[in-house]
């Protein structure tokens, strides 16, 4: 019985949350680029550890990967200019 009461109270509180949805949007938009950069960096470190002589080539290849991922992040940050409330 207590659990049902608690659930009802929580539901009331959740429905009462208000504010700027852009905050949630930013939070969701960071997930993809964060995972992407993490993967690119980890694989580059692994590759350089395996073949240190390839460091130069791997660094510029990583630059392309990071640039592509951050383009996605930048577009996510700039969307308030087209999505107006």
């Amino acid at each position: 019985m207590q659990i049902i009461q608690l659930a009802a109270e929580t539901a009331t509180q959740v429905s009462a949350i208000s504010g700027n949805l852009g905050v949630l949007g930013y939070g969701i938009a960071t997930i993809g680029p964060a995972l992407g950069v993490g993967l690119v960096v980890s694989k580059t470190i692994e590759s350089i550890a395996r073949q240190p002589e390839m460091a130069g080539r791997l660094q510029v290849t990583m630059f392309i990967g990071v640039a592509l991922i951050e383009a996605l992040a930048l577009i996510g940050l700039a969307t308030p200019f087209i999505f107006t409330a």
């Binding site: 240190p52 460091a55 510029v60 290849t61 392309i64």
Partner: peptide
């Protein structure tokens, strides 16, 4: 535009393997 340019420039670059 810069992404396309960067990709083209890096694809064209001839990087030599060097131990750093």
């Amino acid at each position: 535009g810069t992404l396309i340019l960067d990709s083209l420039l890096i694809a064209k670059a001839r990087l030599t393997p060097v131990v750093q």
